[in-house]
Design a binder for these strands. Structure first.
Length: 576
DNA sequence: GCCGTTTTCGGCCCGACTGTTTTCAGTCG
């Protein structure tokens, strides 16, 4: 059982939880949390780094002690310090920390005063009215705990960003019409373009007498008002999405936008930089003593700490501050850079429109070329194409290309990668296509070694061009396949083929950190819609945002190439 | 536990809201 970065992050988070309950030095706790976040964001495998003898203390936030713990975890599969903590403090207590409203102090009190160690015991204690008897707790706290426990049973997972987007847009429109409101913008993880959002953070600039808070909590889609003050309020919408609104004066716009965009660890790093030069940074501005020296715009916030503007998609404290300082920030790929789409379906397989309709929609979306890539015969539920039907479609595309204006269709296939790593169609017909997109559509459960070997073998097929939705995950419903993604990416480099960032809202696959690995390895990525309808080209913006989060520039994205530049790149993968 | 143009000690990001308190602790983002 190989130890992956998320396993290490989980161990560190668990240590932090237990230390917190034990009332340990909060900065020691923070060190573990910081390390956990760092580990999750790494583009390379810690196990590989350890095996290569790399010095882990080079990583920011990892010192002698944490380096030793990482080495122990990757080599033995367990962490003796964590096990020791679990003997002192019941590990189930960390589950209680997840109950909203319960932090380490209250969990410790519940444990010591009432012997509550599990969620079940907590529920019982709350129902029996025993919690209110603990000093510092009251009836309201007890009721809130019970409420939170009941809500947690119907727990809401994070929302795919594309699902949250229309709710955000509607709220922004609504708030912009409130008297005294000047600007309304969605900040938080939504603005950073994360693949999912846990809540929406909305920032408004408004005059002091604006009724924006009252109007916000009175919004028709609000199911529950969680808290409401003069500058901040939290509500839950009917679809269970939590929305926070912060209102500030127009003059604080830049500082507040920066603050509420985050990420938390990016902000902390910026504040430290401010502190080093005698500045206090908060959501109202940058202050030297009492004098406010910046904060009207985000640019002014960065400038005050000596940095150029950093795009929201980069603000994860994954090296962007160092890059900014060194003048090495990437010039991120932009929506207008995309010239084509290399993965789309028509009604010949499981799409809903004719090829002609799809071509027209792609052209309307500003694209110059579109690859038609139906499923192959193995995927019978999607009416996958056999060689005869594919041959007929190729003829159809040739004809359409003589008729269409302003867009060129490419002949492709989304061929199934079979369980043994072979492709679902014979080389004879694959070699006549412009490109071969290949994907796994079944047996997602193979063990890591076999699954990785399956994909590596598929890539070795002389007709393989692009690996589609490489991890196979579906947000909220299917975990990513257990594969060695860095190895697959390295293999793509050696083989000279490409990987995809699939822009479907529930896929967004590759994920950002693997996109960044691909960039570092020099592997080009295709940002593809995987459109099944004429409306799906809109999703490209979400795929593009993942590319931006992976630090990709125009040169790193395959389908920013003109058709003339693209053809030889595709041909090179097919010519073996 | 980490870190160092205040380097091996003594710091460590900052503020809003709630509830149970009378001046603040706990939680959250």
């Amino acid at each position: 059982m190989p130890v992956l970065n998320p396993d290490i992050a989980r161990a560190f988070d668990e240590i932090a939880d237990l230390l917190e309950i034990e009332d340990a030095n909060p900065f020691r706790v923070r060190a573990y949390r910081t390390a956990a976040r760092l580990v999750l964001g790494l583009t390379s495998d810690l196990k590989t780094m350890v095996e290569a003898g790399e010095d882990l203390t080079e990583l920011p936030g990892i010192g002698e002690d944490l380096a030793k713990k990482i080495i122990e975890i990757v080599t033995t599969g367990h962490c003796s310090f964590l096990e020791k903590l679990e003997k002192q403090t019941p590990p189930a207590l960390t589950e209680l920390l997840k109950v909203p409203g319960l932090g380490p102090k209250r969990v410790k009190a519940l444990w010591h005063e009432l012997d509550v160690e599990t969620v079940d015991q907590l529920t019982r204690a709350a129902r029996e009215g025993r919690i209110r008897s603990i000093p510092g707790f009251g009836e309201k706290t007890e009721a809130r705990i019970l409420e939170a426990l009941q809500a947690q049973i119907a727990a809401v997972p994070r929302f795919p960003i594309a699902v949250a987007a229309p709710y955000a847009a509607a709220l922004v429109r609504y708030l912009r019409n409130v008297p005294g409101v000047r600007r309304v913008v969605v900040a938080g993880s939504f603005r950073r373009g994360r693949d999912t959002v846990g809540d929406l953070d909305i920032l408004a600039t408004a005059s002091a007498d604006s009724p924006v808070m009252e109007r916000f909590t009175a919004y028709e889609d609000v199911a529950e008002v969680f808290s409401q003050g003069t500058t901040r309020a939290t509500v839950i919408l009917r679809n269970k999405l939590q929305v926070d609104l912060r209102a500030v004066d127009e003059s604080a716009y830049g500082a507040a936008l920066h603050y509420f965009t985050g990420s938390k660890s990016h902000n902390i790093a910026i504040r430290r930089m401010g502190q080093d030069i005698g500045l206090k940074v908060n959501e109202y501005g940058l202050f030297r003593g009492k004098e406010r020296i910046a904060g009207d715009t985000e640019e002014s916030v960065y400038a005050a700490v000596g940095l150029p503007y950093i795009e929201p998609e980069l603000r994860e404290n994954r090296g962007e501050i160092q890059a900014a300082r060194a003048g090495h920030l990437p010039k991120l790929v932009a929506m207008g850079d995309l010239r084509g789409d290399l993965h789309a379906h028509s009604k010949a397989s499981d799409g809903h429109y004719s090829i002609r309709d799809m071509a027209a929609a792609a052209r309307a979306a500003g694209l110059e070329y579109l690859a038609i890539t139906e499923h192959s015969r193995h995927l019978t539920v999607a009416h996958g194409l056999d060689p005869v039907r594919l041959r007929r479609q190729m003829d159809e595309i040739d004809t359409l290309n003589t008729e269409l204006d302003g867009i060129t269709l490419l002949k492709g296939i989304e061929v199934d990668i079979l369980e043994d790593g072979s492709l679902d169609l014979p080389g004879g017909i694959l070699s006549d296509l412009d490109l071969v997109v290949a994907a796994v559509h079944y047996r997602f459960d193979l063990p890591r070694g076999k699954q990785t070997a399956r994909i590596l073998k598929a890539m070795d097929n002389p007709h393989f061009t692009i690996l589609a939705h490489p991890s196979g995950r579906l947000i909220g419903s299917r975990n990513p396949m257990d594969v060695d993604m860095p190895r697959i990416i390295r293999h793509a480099r050696e083989r000279g083929c490409f990987l995809e960032i699939n822009a479907q809202p529930e896929r967004l696959d590759l994920v950002d950190i693997h996109a960044r690995t691909a960039k570092e390895e020099g592997v080009l990525l295709a940002v593809n819609s995987d459109a099944h309808s004429i409306h799906d080209f809109d999703n490209l913006r979400f795929g593009l945002q993942q590319a931006q989060r992976g630090w990709l520039e125009m040169k790193d994205v395959l389908n920013t190439r003109t058709l003339k530049e693209l053809r030889p790149l595709l041909a090179a993968t097919m010519s073996r």
